[in-house]
Amino acid sequence: MLELKNVTKIFNGGTCNEKVALNDLSLTLNDGDFVTVIGGNGAGKSTVLNAIAGVWKPDTGKILIDGEDVTNMPEHKRAKYLGRVFQDPRLGTAGNMNIDENLALAARRGKRRGLGWGITKKEREHYRELLAELNLGLESRITTKIGVLSGGQRQAVTLLMASLQQPKLLLLDEHTAALDPKTAAKVLELTDRIVRENKLTALMVTHNMRDAIAYGNRLIMMHNGRIILDISGEDKKQLTVELLLKQFNVAAGETFDNDRALLTD
């Protein structure tokens, strides 16, 4: 489904701030995989997602989606394969535009945009139904500017947007990190539901070890731009936070240093 072959990315190369963000990283995702990604500060979790999304080109290596080489494909073209939700709730939606307009933008992902209406009446009815399923009361506020919604509401709508056009791959970049624990739990449940219902392949970066263990069928731990643990199947089901930390110490040869991950329950 998704293949990363020996991808390397160095930021600020040749300066004193040089940072090897991805170090000869290879990863293969199978159809229907729901992979959680966990790692210390600066391990390269978000960098992997940005490489896949095409925010910049990797220095070396190849990225293939369903066998197609997308390494040099610009971000907006690659978007037809990808659904994305960001850490900052403001990033995933156009704040000055209405809820329904945002959904309409997402519904046209990967399609040619012409001089037809940006949103039709029929669509609006459809969105009203989809929003009602979120149970956030948004269906009656469909022409509200999305910028006035709370972070959790915006993330929920962004999730809906990411799944409107069935993506080959859903990229979730710590999308619950900016939310309060209660809202974060709700958004995670919604994520799980959307992934299951649409049978999506998903890559979810999280800072919360419990979430990483609880969700998905496969867990990847990153360290210094490399994948140091890749646990799936029965092993994944048996995982506990203690076990994971122990395995990390063995694999990385040092203690886990993500203060946020350790402090969050």
Binding site: A53, E75, H76, K77, A79, K80, L82, R84, F86, R90, L91, G92, T93, A94, G95, N96, M97, L105, A106, R108, R109, G110, K111, R113, M161
Partner: peptide, 13 residues
């Protein structure tokens, strides 16, 4: 309004 979101939605900014 939001160039990052636009690109993610396949818009040629």
């Amino acid at each position: 309004c939001n160039a990052a979101m636009s690109k993610a939605q396949g818009i040629n900014t």
